[in-house]
Design a protein around this nucleic acid. Structure first.
Lengths: 150, 150
DNA sequence: GGTGAAATGCTATTAAC
DNA sequence: GTTAATAGCATTTCACC
């Protein structure tokens, strides 16, 4: 389904999504049109979900980073809550996880007042029984790159 | 320093980093060369840190997602520990944050055995006094896109 | 200092094999 | 998967405001 050449292509695109197909072709030893077809296929089958620019949050006046931990009651409605959370602006990550605090939500916003608004709108969801918010001093690494061979 | 056109360009590139300069130019009402210059400048000034493909972890046999919470002693060495953590393969996020568990580490790997290895190598760092690991059922949203106007 | 217009060598994309 | 063909694109240069 996915061969070594595909893995090479994915590695290159994770490193720099704007690499031209011609350049990728050179690096993997195929023609540009072969690479083109492979990338289209990877996109169509959902292996590649998209391409994004990594932007400095400070440049967009979005310097507050926080994590919110949720408890639900009843937990049975986790799916619905997850979907509702993903709709809230400023929420970058919604993770359903093990433990009593069964949701982790990563939030980015302009200032602590905006954070308050977001946390309040999370608390507005019926099924959410409590939240605990932790503010980040600093992100020392943030990446979506999937490690290969790990 | 950054004007409305730049914000528009950043929004487009965050949505799809492979959008051509010509297409961006059409959308923001400028010429391709003007857009080209602006993007180069945004890259040079560090506003744009890079471009990455968003890949489905399962396709690369990397289906385990976990979060590890750390306590340090002494906390004074946070900077050093942060740098050491970013070096470990499979660690996607390293966040220095408020609270007793002052580091959050996001890990992606193949299976729970690989996770054990990673958590053990975190525990091997002298300054790390304890770790608490939580495994994710599922990521319902994962994004690096900076919200604009929030 | 950023912009638009023209020039050129590459690139994406398609079609035929 | 390749090759060949074409339309479109990235990138440079330069005159302009």
């Amino acid at each position: 389904m996915i061969d070594d050449i595909d893995v090479q292509i994915l590695t290159i695109l994770q490193e720099n999504a704007r690499t031209s197909n011609a350049e990728i072709a050179r690096q993997v030893g195929k023609t540009a049109s072969a690479v083109f077809e492979r990338i289209k296929k990877l996109e169509k089958t959902g292996v590649v979900k998209g391409y994004t620019a990594v932007v400095d949050p400070a440049a967009l006046e979005c310097s507050v980073l926080a994590y919110v931990f949720l408890r639900l009651s009843p937990h049975r409605l986790a799916r619905t809550v997850g979907a509702q959370l993903t709709e809230i602006a400023g929420i970058q990550e919604v993770i359903h996880m093990t433990g009593e605090e069964c949701f982790l939500v990563k939030v980015r916003c302009k200032d602590t007042e905006a954070l308050e608004r977001i946390v309040m709108s999370i608390n507005d969801i019926d099924t959410v029984s409590s939240t605990r918010t932790v503010i980040a001093f600093r992100a020392m690494r943030e990446s979506l790159v999937i490690p290969v061979g790990g």
